[in-house]
């Protein structure tokens, strides 16, 4: 296939641009890794680019993080929340998205409105809190899973994915007498794999990054997810209580190392899961490309 000159120039710039984006997004991680093994006293005074560890390299930060047992229970809890949460998320979103994509449903519009309205209107913090308490979910991991079981914007994305599937594909099955369940699970879901992968990613990251609900609903710190532990440690030096007038529990240097090492340690699983998800995602793209 012949390519025009303009297209070649475009490809060159496009590649450069892509490299720039990748670098800009990678650098912060690189920065954190380098900082986590730098000499903290030197690092505190260093106020610019970081290309190479400054001062005498050290692994003290990692030693301190791995000695903190909260980090491990945090990982375990986060994975528990992720596993159970995703199960609910994907099932409910697929069911809801499918039903709302059905053209011939009389109540489709009112149901859609019921769903969309919640995006812009909520009772607020206190009523939600009281609701969780009344449901008996206080101090339970379910308080972090159930209230976010369906995200309305994800539901809408799912719905559009189903709507984009040509009706001819499902009509044939329906003529053969397939019910809604069969249509959804046998025909539609395999066709929208790419969107499902996106859903797993969206919901998964939302669970991974969430800390606020945990901070208000949980009482035992053995149940804390990793992000809340991370956040408490990251902000602990800023929450210096003017009243408790004692020297900081950790030296400023140690705090700095712990912070950076903890960010690295807490990102490792994400980086490990990436290639897997990415492959799945790519596969989804391929299937999308073959389709039709």
């Amino acid at each position: 296939m012949e390519k025009s000159k303009g297209y070649k120039i475009f490809t060159l710039f496009n590649t450069l641009f892509m490299l720039f984006v990748a670098a800009a997004c990678l650098y912060p991680f690189y920065y954190i890794i380098v900082a986590s093994v730098s000499d903290p006293s030197t690092l505190m005074r260093h106020r610019s680019w970081l290309v190479w560890p400054v001062g005498e390299p050290t692994l003290d930060g990692y030693r301190m993080v791995l000695n903190n047992r909260r980090v491990f229970s945090g990982f375990a809890n986060t994975f528990r929340i992720l596993g159970l949460g995703l199960l609910f998320n994907i099932t409910l979103t697929a069911l809801g998205g499918y039903v709302l994509s059905l053209n011939n449903l009389l109540l489709r519009k009112p149901l859609t409105l019921i769903v969309i309205f919640t995006m812009y209107f909520s009772g607020g913090l206190i009523p939600s809190y009281l609701n969780i308490r009344d449901l008996g979910l206080m101090n339970s991991l379910w308080a972090l899973i159930l209230p976010g079981a369906v995200s309305t914007s994800n539901l809408i994305i799912m719905r559009s994915a189903f709507m984009a599937v040509p009706e001819s594909l499902t009509d044939a099955a329906k003529i053969d007498g397939a019910g809604h369940f069969q249509v959804l699970f046998r025909i539609l879901l395999p066709l929208v794999k790419a969107t499902l992968a996106v859903m797993v990613l969206y919901y998964g990251v939302a669970h991974w990054n969430s800390w606020f609900s945990a901070s208000i609903y949980l009482r035992d710190n053995t149940k804390y997810p990793l992000q809340l532990i991370l956040r408490n440690i990251l902000l602990s030096s800023q929450q210096q209580d003017m009243l408790s007038d004692v020297p900081m529990a950790q030296t400023p240097q140690a705090m700095l190392l712990i912070k950076y090492s903890l960010i690295v340690v807490s990102s490792v699983p994400v980086i490990c899961i990436y290639p897997f998800l990415q492959r799945f995602f790519q596969k989804g793209i391929m299937i999308g490309a073959v389709k039709g």
């Binding site: 505190m44 005074r45 210096q240 209580d241 003017m242 007038d245 004692v246 020297p247 400023p252």
Partner: peptide
Amino acid sequence: GDTLTAYMLSGDSGATAGPIGSMMGTYLNT
């Protein structure tokens, strides 16, 4: 806070104000 600590520890700064325990104590300990 981290910058303040760094300034006071490194000799970039020579005067500040704050709690005797948490600030002065931390600087002297460190």
